[in-house]
Amino acid sequence: MKTLKKRRRVQVILLAVVALVLATGLIGFAMRDGINFFRSPSQVIAEPPKPTEVFRIGGLVEEGSIIRGQGKTVRFVVTDGGESVPVAFTGVLPDLFAENQGMVGTGSYVNGVFEATEILAKHDETYMPKEVVDALKKQGVYKEAGES
């Protein structure tokens, strides 16, 4: 009688372990495309990612760098004060997108140009994405609101 209970208990434990491993594997598989790492322009220049890697880049749009091309293609340069990365985006830019303003883009770095699939801009005069603020502070460029 005891051996039957022990055997059943071991079977239940093994089944639970297999279910846990399977669930963890499925969650990891589902999230593999949903995680986009953030990089500053300095990090992109220092260690260029593979062209197939999708990531987020953020910084300030350089003054005088916005070039509107044929159709909806827009080219500009994003900087963190240390390095600059050219960006190409085809689509409609957010209304608040402007020079010397913070932005975050999602896309890939191909042949020295960040090809963005999505561009996000700040939503008021004081907001800047945390990742962009951290990168600019690291470069010594960021100034708090009210500083000159």
Rank of each mutant, 00 (worst) to 15 (best):
F37M: 14
E125K: 07
I66F: 01
H123G: 13
G112P: 01
T52M: 03
G69W: 06
A121P: 07
V54D: 07
G140I: 01
L26C: 04
T117Y: 01
L136V: 03
N100C: 02
F97R: 03
G146D: 02
G91Y: 03
V18N: 03
G91K: 10
N111F: 06
L4S: 11
F55C: 07
L4F: 06
E99A: 12
F55Q: 13
M31V: 06
Q43E: 13
F38W: 02
S148K: 12
I119A: 08
V113R: 12
N111R: 13
N100H: 04
E125V: 14
N111L: 10
T52Q: 07
V92G: 01
I57L: 15
L93A: 08
T73P: 02
L4Y: 03
T24E: 05
D95S: 15
K2M: 07
P129E: 08
T52V: 06
E53P: 06
K138V: 09
V77M: 00
V10G: 02
K72H: 05
V74F: 03
G34S: 14
R75N: 09
E115H: 13
K6Q: 05
V10C: 04
D124F: 10
T52C: 00
P86V: 01
K72Q: 10
V18F: 11
G71H: 05
V132K: 12
A121I: 00
K122I: 01
T117P: 05
L120V: 03
I57V: 14
L4I: 13
S40F: 02
I27G: 11
